[in-house]
């Protein structure tokens, strides 16, 4: 098993995930970035997108996928922290509302987040 690192995903309302992760993939403003344990200290701003992570839940590897809006990622030797304005799981996404947002929003950030939500749900 690959080595793991503490990973926390925090939104202003709650801690969406806290545990061990092998790999965290986020969409930064520069593009997708995958971070493993022992990554050099790293700090970047995020774009709305789908966050994917290989996490260990109850000693079993699991795939974590969330649509995130805004925020930042910081990788330090002692852990990876992702701050997001919003982080939605598959079951929390309102597909119909996201479709409308994607089609009608003039704000590119809203549209990108809607696209990410639809991507997460496989639409």
């Amino acid at each position: 098993m690959a080595s793991t690192i503490p990973f926390t995903l925090i939104t202003p309302q709650s801690v969406a995930f806290s545990g061990q992760a092998e790999l965290v993939i986020v969409t930064t403003t520069e593009g997708e970035e995958g971070i493993l344990a022992k990554h050099a200290p790293f700090l970047a701003a995020l774009k709305p997108g789908v966050l994917r992570a290989n996490v260990i839940v109850e000693e079993k590897p699991q795939r974590l996928e969330l649509a995130t809006r805004g925020g930042f990622i910081q990788a330090l030797p002692d852990g990876i922290t992702v701050l997001a304005d919003e982080a939605l799981r598959f079951e929390d996404v309102d597909v119909a509302a996201s479709r409308i947002e994607l089609a009608e929003s003039s704000d590119p950030l809203v549209a990108e987040f809607a696209a990410a939500k639809l991507r997460l749900t496989g639409h």
């Binding site: 930064t28 403003t29 520069e30 970035e33 050099a40 200290p41 790293f42 700090l43 970047a44 701003a45 805004g70 925020g71 930042f72 330090l76 030797p77 701050l83």
Partner: peptide, 23 residues
């Protein structure tokens, strides 16, 4: 304090800061 010294920023510290301060 946090990690000092060699931190990578994408794309640049100024850019990240310009996002972080309003937040």
């Amino acid at each position: 304090g946090g990690a000092k010294g060699a931190v990578e920023f994408a794309p640049s510290p100024e850019f990240v800061l310009s996002r972080l301060l309003p937040k």
